[in-house]
Simulated assay, not measured.
Amino acid sequence: MLTDSTAYFSINHPFDAYLSLWDSTNPLPSAQLLSAMLPSGLQLISDVKALEADCLLQLRHLDDEAKTVVEFLKLQSRKIDMVLQHVMAKEQYDGDLYQASHFGGSGFTVISATALELGREYKATLHIKEELVALLCIAKVQSCTLLADNSGEQAISNSESEAAPSRYACEFNFSVIQESDVEQLVKASLSLQQKQLKLRKLAR
């Protein structure tokens, strides 16, 4: 579980978020109970990612003579990733689908047609397919900002919004999440940042 003092880098990247309002009369689950709530597909992805992370950690201690083994294991990892991508695509997620715009180790932001009530807790499934991330968490609405236009970058007052449908950027902070999932999100944000920087260099 995260504390209010926990802060991580957040990256702008579109992905899917499935939200279900948490019944406020029920206590929030512990991280252990949250793990037990995982559907089979997400549990499979979580287990495989944990095994891969452990394997990569061990590979760092191998010398140059083991390069062939390392390359073979990387190939096997890519094959597994392709299978998991298929599992993720077929998984049926609970909750309403939202287009999300930002994420990091502290939370995420979704774009909503209506303002979500501040302070309410949601059960959320985050699906970041490019980085093979699919995780379950409990998150609280921290802010909800009316957006000026479809770019989703500039806030305006209600009086300035006319014909265009209202869109809100609703920011969530994690209330309950597995530590391993926080690590996944941090790694994914850094990976996507590197990819974005490379694309910018190529575009110059």
Rank of each mutant, 00 (worst) to 15 (best):
L75V: 09
K140V: 15
H86K: 11
Y18V: 00
G105I: 08
H102N: 15
L19E: 08
A31H: 02
D149T: 01
D64H: 10
A113I: 11
D23V: 10
D54L: 09
L136D: 04
Q154T: 15
L21T: 11
G95F: 07
I45P: 02
F108V: 07
L146V: 01
G119Y: 07
L44M: 08
P14G: 03
Y93V: 12
S20P: 02
Y18T: 00
S143E: 11
E91L: 02
G107P: 03
D94N: 10
L73P: 03
A139G: 09
D64F: 09
G95E: 03
A100E: 05
H127P: 00
K79M: 14
A115D: 11
G152E: 01
G95K: 02
H127F: 09
V110Y: 04
L19H: 06
K74G: 10
A36H: 10
M37P: 08
G105L: 03
T145D: 14
A89S: 11
C144T: 14
D149Y: 01
L59K: 09
Q32K: 13
S30K: 09
V110F: 04
Q99S: 13
A89Q: 10
Q43A: 14
D54W: 05
L135Y: 02
L84F: 00
F108R: 01
V69W: 12
G152H: 01
L126R: 06
E71C: 07
F15V: 05
L59D: 06
C55D: 11
D54P: 00
A89E: 10
S151I: 06
L84N: 00
S20D: 10
I111N: 07
L135P: 00
Q142N: 08
L136S: 05
S20E: 13
D81R: 09
A53N: 12
D81N: 08
T145Q: 15
A31W: 05
P29F: 05
G152W: 01
V69L: 15
N150K: 13
S112M: 04
L51D: 07
G41L: 04
Q85F: 04
L28H: 12
E121K: 12
A17H: 05
K129L: 12
A50L: 08
Q85E: 11
H61W: 14
H102G: 00
Q58K: 15
V70K: 12
L75C: 10
L21Y: 09
V141D: 03
P14S: 02
G41C: 07
W22I: 05
S35R: 14
Y98P: 03
H61E: 14
S40Q: 14
S151G: 12
D63H: 06
E117S: 10
Q43C: 06
L135H: 03
E71N: 08
L136C: 04
L84C: 02
E65T: 15
V110N: 03
K49C: 06
R78D: 10
P39D: 06
I80N: 00
L56F: 11
Y98I: 00
